[in-house]
Design a protein around this nucleic acid. Structure first.
Length: 480
RNA sequence: GCUCCCAUCGUCUAGUCUGGUCUAGGACACCGCCUUUUCACGGCGGUAACAGGGGUUCGAAUCCCCUUGGGAGUACCA
């Protein structure tokens, strides 16, 4: 049987880092076995679900490079892929369970429910212990109440037995019989509930694997009951560990940038994000750390998962971004970084060849795009750096001589119509200072750097000077 | 409270199933040295972990039990 795996977000917000990781794993499980990756929208919570989030979700998934084979936007043979469009089916199946005596109408009011919950808590037993008041209520009577319009929900009749299943990442997991009570499957507003829809859909959509985060582990027992009630064999389950923040709590908004879109906005490379996320709970069989998704599709297996929660560390993500950035071709590198610079940045007025050599050189110096402008200052800044180091260089007697010489030399080159100072010309300048001015050692190099860049330190002058526009050079000459 | 899950450097992890080759390997971060007459890159090196206690065994990071610690769930959210 062909492998089918779904990612089933609810459109109540933007795609979360944790969600992206789950989607990535789902995608990988499908791809590793040549299977199908399905996107299903779980929008049964009318209050919180929004169409715009669904749209954003699909866009973010696409940005991540996790494209689905079936889903609400692309269709497929198992639709519809939005739960809100499958309501009738859930209702019918819930009715069927009621008919069969596997579920029942419940007329408990909110107040009654609360009282019963409190009572159970006071007795230090499971809070749901008394939620079964209507479990053995006469079905004919119940039907009458329903027909009379009395507010009701449909509860699943818990078979009250122990459930055991084998989780592909956690091994054998056992739930005791009083783990959950008779849980609601159809709300009083007629909408079905997650634990019910999820089972129906995974069954009807013929899912072979259910990969989700550990927060759903406890839900599995309810779902197992529903599968059993319909006489359906459940899919394989795999619960990956949770992502946590600095405080070791489940990763959430208060931990900072936790939406995929925020990384997209900061111009992170999606392949870097995926690479990093993949390694949070899973490890490469050959211990490789930097890789492309397509490279691991063939080695991805479920037996390499870590069971303990993983801490999300942005510093390490930045490192991965740098690694992936340096793997880009020159052309892609320019396409990636150029748009991250403000449109007024002088970088844009330079020709293609210049842009390429510039970025090829500077890419070694930073990991994320937002750090690029500060590195480019060494090429474009026309303001003298203010620092103790600069003051020290300025205080040397030799420095003034160098500056005077450099100033005339720059003017000479500029008037010749050249746009840049060549490496040869720079070497001439160095030689002149050495032989005619008799300056050497740090006095020579630091002095030259100050005269040419206005800074006390920075990248190799032989690389920097030929990349610096001559007009910038001229403007700098009045400074020191 | 109850239920479930988990436990190797600060962090992500390899090693655990199939006990010895592990005085525990890699990566991020950090520190030092070399190189670079500067910075960075790079190279080399360093600090740093098997939560604790009992077993089993000739031998335990690895198997078993307990304790402690952490997380999740406990909804007419998903």
């Amino acid at each position: 049987m062909s492998v089918r795996v779904r990612f089933a977000p609810s459109p109540t917000g933007y795609l979360h880092i944790g969600g992206a990781r789950t989607a990535l794993y789902c995608h990988l499980i499908a791809k590793a076995k040549g299977g199908t990756f399905v996107l299903r929208i779980e929008d049964t919570d009318l209050e919180r679900s929004k169409k715009e989030y669904e749209v954003a979700m699909i866009e973010d998934l696409k940005w991540c490079g996790l494209e689905h084979n079936e889903g609400p936007d692309v269709g497929g043979g198992f639709g519809p892929y939005r739960q809100s469009e499958r309501i009738e089916m859930y209702k019918q199946l819930a009715d069927q369970l009621v008919e069969e005596g596997k579920a029942y109408y419940c007329f408990l009011s909110d107040e009654e429910l609360e009282e019963l919950t409190e009572k159970a808590k006071a007795e230090k037993i499971s809070p749901h212990a008394y939620h079964d008041k209507y479990r053995d209520f006469d079905p004919t009577e119940a039907k009458k109440k329903v027909e009379a319009g009395e507010s009701h929900v449909i509860r699943f009749k818990n078979p009250r037995k122990k459930y055991t299943f084998t989780d592909l990442v956690r091994g054998e997991v056992t739930f005791p019989e009083d783990m959950v009570g008779d849980f609601v499957i159809i709300r009083s507003n007629g909408m079905p509930v997650y634990n019910f829809c999820c089972v129906i859909d995974d069954w009807k959509m013929e899912m072979t694997h259910v990969m989700r985060a550990e927060e759903h582990l406890n839900n599995t027992v309810r779902q197992l009951m529903v599968y059993e009630a319909f006489g359906v064999t459940p899919p394989e389950f795999a619960h990956c560990s949770l992502l946590v923040g600095e405080d070791r709590q489940k990763l959430s908004k208060r931990h900072g940038a936790t939406s995929v879109v925020q990384y997209k906005d900061q111009n992170f490379l999606p392949q870097a994000l995926m690479n990093y996320l993949c390694l949070l709970g899973w490890s490469h069989p050959e211990e490789k750390d930097v890789f492309k998704l397509e490279d691991i599709e063939s080695v991805f297996t479920l037996d390499r998962f870590q069971k303990a929660p993983a801490l999300y560390d942005i510093e390490k993500l930045k490192h991965f971004n740098g690694e992936h950035m340096r793997m880009l071709t020159t052309e892609d590198l320019v396409n990636y970084l150029a748009p991250t610079l403000e449109s007024s940045h002088p970088f844009h007025s330079m020709d293609k060849k210049w842009q390429e050599s510039c970025l090829e050189f500077f890419k070694e110096k930073f990991n994320i795009p937002s750090e690029l402008p500060q590195h480019l200052d060494v090429l474009f800044s026309t303001e003298a750096e203010k620092s103790e180091a600069v003051e020290e260089v300025k205080s040397w007697e030799s420095t003034q001589a160098i500056c005077d010489y450099v100033k005339s030399k720059v003017e000479e080159i500029a008037s010749s119509g050249a746009s840049f100072i060549t490496v040869e010309q720079f070497n001439e300048m160095t030689d002149h200072c050495k032989k005619e001015l008799k300056i050497k050692g740090k006095f020579l190099f630091k002095g030259l750097r100050l005269a040419l860049t206005g800074m006390a330190e920075g990248p190799d002058l032989k690389v920097v000077i030929p990349l610096t526009p001559i007009e910038i050079m001229k403007k700098r000459q009045g400074l020191s």
